[in-house]
Write a protein that binds this DNA or RNA. Structure first.
Length: 780
DNA sequence: ACGTCCCGCCAGGGG
DNA sequence: CCCCTGGCGGGACGT
């Protein structure tokens, strides 16, 4: 064991030494030494563990601990004499997880909004004694959770866990929309089959696998005030880890026993990116990344490692130990007082809204609308499944206007912009009555015409949580290269024109829709839930409504000027959205001191609401550089519960004028709204049957889902917590059947008829029989 | 032998 | 052009 002594320092970074090999660890730790660096480290760490440390102390503690560590090392060295300093004890001490702990220890879980803490990579790497590369790993996943956001090179802002609830909620939502549950089922089924023999029919599986996988991705879920900064930087490819991280988390949030095996996760993630088959190496790499992610998630205590034992053997897996994500309800939303920083702060310079192209857009849209009015636009129910079944996404659908980069760039903003804004957000524009009478979720919904760009953002309200977000599509996986046209949302095409649409049997679609659970019911169904849900919604939304009104009453100018104070770093406003992002809008950010701390009435809130009502909200500026072709990952944009209120529509710049006058009535959607509906549905942005109407009430009753107890399962999946002794979570049965077939909506949804309880399960494709298997999950 | 995953090369791209 | 970012995967370490 001690052998290595000879090599050392020199060996360390010798180029001639096989560069491709991991440097052997200089082990010099005296085996017999009672005191081991490891143990010491562990103690320190445990001391600094999140559970124990309190916010304030945290910082100091960590510092002290790290220092102590240093000291120890020095000490050790001295004691050991001229031993090599790199006594770096075993690999474990260098683990990402540990490093992450140290990293996290430096910042409070819930930093006070007033004082932002910034993260300087250089400092961190230095203080933590790590290679920069490692920090990126950590930061990237933290970013995916919106716990940090990048400001600039070497610079990040620490948000702590404030955003976690919203993030998780959004992720869960997206996860549901992505039908991860089905995908998981599919994968498992595939495995099962695979068991029988060599990969016989595997291929067909893939193909038939309701397109579940592939094609969806590269979308990142974002929260409004949080990260735009990075957007410019991360315009594209360099998103992998972050996106992976989010998806990984989604898997947990969506699956019923919240346990996800690495294998499955890897497959899903791979599948999504490319339906390439199980490329061995690719799979391996994916797994590796997953470990990285898992390590930091573990450090965050969001998951913990467990083992799933199946027939096949033990498979590494992770169990969600983070907060339960409530399907909806207002709780998750930060207190009303905490108004988010304005989405579109002062720095309006590159404000997309200002762009003259917008105006053009509006005009053209109106024209189009006119043209379309006569066209048959009755909403056709289209669900994600529909799309998934479609081999190719119809080009026709998405045609956005091309706003050339050139256009985006230089232009005079100002008067024009102001006009637009006013027009869009002024009280007149939005019927007051509506605003006040439909307090519930009126999230702004804006469809951003994205030109040829790679990003086709769409801002969507999150029905349940009130968290709305936008989706930016990423071009990378576009099969069909499509182009957006300004009329995208507003100009529905006749059904006939839509490729493949007719081929689908409406009934089937409906059926599927129902099964989807969650948001996909027909319009008629939600009724009952409404009552239950309405109240809470109202409550939660009230303040915002107020603010909204207020803001509407206020001159826009103020909004824009106000917090110029926050450094530019706050200039989240117009930063470009990265491609492939999902951006929740409702979310309230903290961090802006002045903002609306506790005084709702101060009117400060109005600022925030600007975001809601501001025309800009719906528009996402695109970096010229990203202007490319747009692809619409149909699968990815699965149905979302989208409720639009007239206000919302009004808020969307693009939709503005044309929609304003018409959309006030809930009952009968006018041409424009129907058109909008059509488009949304068609694209899969909203579930079939859901109408983008003024009535925000179409919500589903939030049901607190206690995942655990679902023993009803049939199988013999066995989940074993490693620590057998103490069943920490009483509600969690030791043995839980892996519920492969849960309906997405979970408790939230009426169980589909055949979905639970027996072996016969339906997938969106039809009925599938999925054999049950025994699983055993054990903690490490 | 296998699960875990550190290490660091190196491409890309921002400044 | 430099250097920050971060994809990527060999192969070391742990068990």
């Amino acid at each position: 064991k001690q052998a290595a002594t000879s090599q050392l320092v020199l060996t360390e970074r010798q180029l001639d030494c096989q560069p491709l090999t991991t440097p052997p660890k200089p082990k010099e730790t005296p085996p017999a030494d009672p005191w081991t660096p490891t143990s010491n480290l562990k103690m320190l760490i445990s001391a600094a563990s999140p559970e124990i440390r309190s916010r304030e102390q945290r910082r100091q503690l960590s510092d002290s601990s790290s220092e102590a560590l240093q000291t120890k090392h020095c000490l050790q060295e001295h004691l050991l004499g001229d031993e090599y300093e790199k006594s770096q004890p075993s690999r474990k001490e260098k683990s990402l997880g540990l490093l992450c702990h140290k990293f996290l220890a430096r910042y409070p879980d819930y930093p006070s909004p007033s004082q932002k803490s910034y993260i300087c990579l250089d400092e961190v790497t230095e203080e933590l004694h790590v290679e920069r590369r490692r920090i990126y790993d950590i930061v990237n996943v933290l970013e995916s959770l919106h716990m940090v956001s990048r400001l600039a090179r070497n610079r990040y802002v620490w948000h702590g866990r404030h955003n976690l609830p919203q993030t998780l909620q959004a992720l869960k939502k997206v996860g549901e929309e992505n039908k991860y549950i089905q995908q998981i089922q599919m994968i498992k089924r595939r495995e099962y089959e695979h068991e029988f023999d060599a990969d016989g029919e595997r291929n067909e599986e893939m193909a038939s696998s309701f397109g579940s996988s592939e094609q969806s991705e590269m979308s990142f879920v974002e929260l409004p005030g949080v990260e735009f900064r990075a957007a410019s930087v991360n315009g594209r490819k360099y998103k992998s880890l972050r996106v992976m991280s989010q998806k990984f988390v989604m898997l947990f949030l969506v699956s019923t026993p919240q346990i996800v095996s690495l294998e499955v996760a890897a497959k899903i993630l791979i599948g999504e990116d490319q339906l390439e088959d199980l490329d061995k190496s690719k799979f391996k790499t994916k797994i590796r990344r997953l470990y990285d992610i898992a390590n930091v998630l573990s450090s965050l205590k969001l998951i913990k490692k467990v083992h799933v034992t199946e027939e096949r053997g033990r498979k590494p897996a992770f169990k969600w130990t983070g907060p339960e994500v409530l399907p909806n309800t207002q709780e998750s939303i930060p207190s009303k007082e905490q108004c988010s920083k304005a989405l579109f702060p002062s720095k309006g310079k590159q404000n997309f809204t200002r762009h003259s192209s917008l105006i053009k857009l509006v005009k053209s849209i109106e024209n189009d609308r006119r043209k379309i009015q006569s066209a048959p636009t009755s909403p056709v129910k289209i669900t994600a499944s529909t799309y998934q079944s479609l081999p190719v996404f119809p080009n026709t659908i998405a045609q956005f206007p091309a706003i050339t980069k050139h256009q985006l760039e230089g232009q005079s903003k100002t008067a024009e912009e102001m006009h637009v804004k006013r027009a869009l957000s002024s009280p007149e524009a939005v019927p007051k009555a509506d605003a006040s009478q439909q307090p519930a979720l009126s999230q702004p919904l804006g469809v951003c015409p994205a030109s040829h760009s790679s990003v086709s953002p769409v801002i969507l309200p999150h029905p349940q949580s009130g968290v709305s977000y936008a989706i930016c599509l990423h071009p990378s996986q576009a099969h069909t290269v499509t182009t957006y046209s300004p009329g995208f949302m507003l100009q529905p095409l006749p059904c006939a024109n839509v490729t493949g649409m007719k081929s689908n049997n409406p009934k089937v679609l409906n059926k599927i829709t129902t099964e989807e659970g969650d948001a996909q019911r027909g319009p008629d169904e939600p009724t009952k839930s409404l009552a239950a849900e309405e109240r809470p919604e109202m409550k939660s939304e009230t303040s915002s409504q107020r603010c909204l009104k207020r803001s509407q009453a206020l001159p826009e100018n103020n909004l824009i000027k106000r917090r110029k104070s926050d450094e530019e770093s706050l200039d989240t406003s117009l930063t470009f959205f990265p491609s492939g992002y999902l951006i929740p809008l409702t979310h309230c950010t903290h961090g802006n001191k002045a903002e609306c701390s506790n005084k709702e009435k101060s009117g400060v809130c109005s600022l925030q609401h600007t975001a809601y009502s501001s025309p800009i909200t719906g528009v996402i500026p695109m970096p010229a550089s990203e202007l490319k072709t747009v692809n619409i990952p149909a699968f990815h944009i699965t149905p979302l519960n989208i409720m639009l209120s007239p206000n919302s529509i009004a808020a969307a710049p693009v939709l503005s004028n044309s929609c304003l006058n018409s959309s006030s009535t809930t009952s009968a959607p006018n041409p424009s709204s129907s058109a909008l509906n059509f488009m949304l549905q068609h694209i899969g942005l909203i579930p079939a049957g859901v109408q983008v109407a003024a009535n925000p009430v179409l919500q589903h009753v939030p049901v607190s889902s206690q995942s655990a107890n679902i023993n009803h399962s049939s199988g013999s999946t066995n989940v074993q917590e490693g620590k057998p002794s103490v069943p920490k979570e009483p509600q969690e049965p030791q043995a839980v059947t892996e519920n492969f077939f849960r309906t997405p909506g979970g408790p939230n949804t009426e169980p589909s008829l055949s979905a639970n309880s027996d072996g016969a399960q339906r997938t969106s494709q039809g009925t599938l029989y999925i054999p049950q298997r025994k699983l055993e999950v054990s903690e490490d």
